[in-house]
Design a binder for these strands. Sequence first.
RNA 1: GGAUGAUUAGCUCAGUUGGCUAGAGCAUCUCGUUUACACCGAGAGGGUCGCAGGUUCGAGUCCUGCAUCAUCCACCA
Length: 887
Amino acid sequence: MSELSKAYDPQKTEDEIYSTWKDSGFFNPDNLKGEPYSIMMPPPNVTGVLHLGHALENSIMDTMARYQRLQGKKVLLVPGTDHAAVATQAKVEKLLVEKGHKNPREEFGREGLLEKIREYAEESKSTILSQVQKMGTSCDWDRLAYTFDEERSEMVNNVFEKMYKDGLIYRGHKVVNWSVKGQSTCSDDELEHKERTGKLYTFKYSKDFPITIATTRPETKLGDTAVAVNPKDARYKKFIGETFTVDIGAKKPLEIKIIANDEVDPEFGTGAVGVTPAHSPVDFEMFEIQKAKNDPIELIQVIGEDGKMTAEAGKNYEGLTVLEAREKFVEFLKENTLLEKEEEITQSVETSDRFGDVVEALPKTQWFIDVNKKIPGHNKSLKELMIEAVTTGLGGDKNQKITINPERFEKVYFSWINELRDWCISRQIWWGHRIPIWYCECGEIIVSRDEPKKCEKCDSKKIKQDPDTLDTWFSSGLWTFSTLTEEERKVFHPTNWMQMGRDIIFFWMARMILMTTYYMEEIPFKDVYIHGMLRDEHGNKFSKSAGNTLDPIDVTEEYGTDALRLSLVTGIAPGNDIKIYKEKIESSRNFVNKLWNISRYILGKSKDSNKEINKKNLTLADTWIIQKMNVLIEEVTSDLDKFRFSQASEKLGDFTKNDFADWYLEVSKFENNEEEKTAILQTILRDLLKLWHPFIPFVTETIWKELDEKELLLIQKWPKKDSYAPSKDAASFEPIIEIIQTVRNLKTENKIEPAKKVKLFVNTKSCSIKNFEEIIKTQENIIKGLRTGVEEISYGSSQENSISKTTSHGITVSIPLEGLIDTQKERAEKEKEVENLKKYIKSVEGKLSNKQFVSKAPKEVVEREKESLQKAKARLKEIEKYLKSLK
RNA sequence: GGAUGAUUAGCUCAGUUGGCUAGAGCAUCUCGUUUACACCGAGAGGGUCGCAGGUUCGAGUCCUGCAUCAUCCACCA
């Protein structure tokens, strides 16, 4: 079809193709038949626009979805977005501050600010969803979900209520992570450890205090109420149980009790730890232990929510920032000669990954999910369910077992669960699901989604809702089932497959497992595929500040979506970081164009469509390509079944470019079984388009349309290898390829112009295939045709004064010399080859003389070694002969 | 401190259960303007597979140790 342009132009076709797919209804599984197969899209945050990471996710999951659809399954891919509580509010507040609003929370109030955030979220939602379309993702738009929409919010309340009634959600007064800047709690996973240099101060509370302690946070010492020592430590044993009163300037003198704790390492530092229960999670644990032992210690909060010292810290410190107080307290220690040492150390501090400030540990009343408590009626804790889901399967049911790919991430997951503490789910920000808990003035606590009319206990109408909202991962954890109706869950849940970045294994994967195993008593997904993070060419993270960002939309506009998608799934190993850069995308774009031109050629040759291959009149090359195609289908299918996307696309690329385009297509120009050729070319092209479709959907669908097909490629049937069953005694075409390559090779090596006409001598005496000379004779026009410059072929032993090479099939190819050779260079090269050959022969002979090798190695291996030894020897003889002739 | 990954050609990376003289893309060099394709074709050069041991008939692949880099986790005051 000559009207097709020489180069594929993605811009012209992509949008139109996407609408065709969408309008066809086949993105919706209700219009498909077959076994159900479901994937949930990890919902992008509504914090802005899509970045390359999303492009990667869309490529991977859509490749899978399209593959399964072609496999004849009823595929559901649910699209959605995430309200991303803290992230979105932080982003909008930042934008407002940049616009000159100093304190947006005060200025706009709860409802006002929520309205601002809602506007922003809606806008970025629609941007993101249009970008998802641009990536070609074949998701069911009729089932579009949003973590903050009505259905999802209702599910959040249902789950909260059930957990609350089961006693798994509780309100507790504990030391939590507090971001002063964000004025909210953070969960342990939302912290980032940053290395910093700090000072370690070694001091005593007072001159007569018997134990020296060390700290990097002197100001918190104003709230110390104990010193912990190891009970086995002889130095301090005698003091355990004693209480000392010291006055270091806090509101009142501190009562410091000496307590025993096995965790304290006598070898480290002074062997004693100053305990500040209010401002350290570890010290708080000691506080709880002491309480349980009936030997309580005090808890004094000296730092407030505003990050400033409280009244408890004493007159001198009240109102000072943490840093000011630190300086002042160190000054005090120095003045009273209590400071023994001051040294520089590197320490890791916890910062909030959303607000960026250093997080303070503060005692606060918050809502928690208890991960260790037995679930009523189950005799198992959430933690145990989370482990079971990945090991034996829920309740030992293998159909309820999650497989993590690659396997090594299981270890990461288990070690995280091991250290998992109760999950703090309440946040003091406004953007998010409000906690469905109401407090009556009488003290009654009511769990209810809507405002209760009156208190059931006291009939009072003075009821207030908890002001806090839920951690965003609470709703994300429900994603695999909150996106489905009850009916749909019977068909599509557990979902079949899930993919996500390694960075959210804890945040998301773990929470989904927790929530789903608890609420649904099912696993959320059967297989999860963990991919690495994107990097630039030099392995750097993409970031705005580094200025190395690549906008996926720009890329698709310049190179096409297919090129981007192909680049993102090729040449990568599961779980490892993925480097992406212009050259890689360019080469994908070039490949897409290649496929376009292959199709253009085939379409130009014949418009006849869908002819069956008549196996009676096939040439050597025909059977060869049919065999190759057979193997290709088998391998690509198996790779995709095992999520080896990279291997699959590489094999496809290899076949398409090398075997099909470079050899078969070229050869086909010199053979005249017109009818069979057309059938083969068309059949292979059609199936190749199907195999390629999951990776590069747009170009394949565009070509498919040109084939005058009525149905979309989207819903075709995956090729079967049976249709390419090779005839049993098909002789291989490989040796012919080798002969042609050898001729070209000889010419280049000997500086003979490729177009130069030459005579060719072929000797098949040591060829492993019987009577191969007869076969070569039938292929002469191909050998002559494929730009070898060969004008005449003779058989038998080569002449004196010719250059020759033996192919791996033992065919010796010679070209008589024409006096065109640069002999000196030639000799040097040949001598090098002789050297290498001798080395090789020696090593193989060594191998073969090894009795253990000969007896233990598989027969084929030994045979192969013998064969290649023969060949090497033959080659050596030839070169030596030739070197002589040069002299 | 613990864990995981990486270390293979100038660059970016593949390499399945150990087995044919270790592969691809980009870059380099040579040749080529042949009606599918210059977003092209035909070739070439380039690697003691991080280092040191071990297991094995045989190791890029398995084991041990070391080095360098990266990432994650951790309460060492």
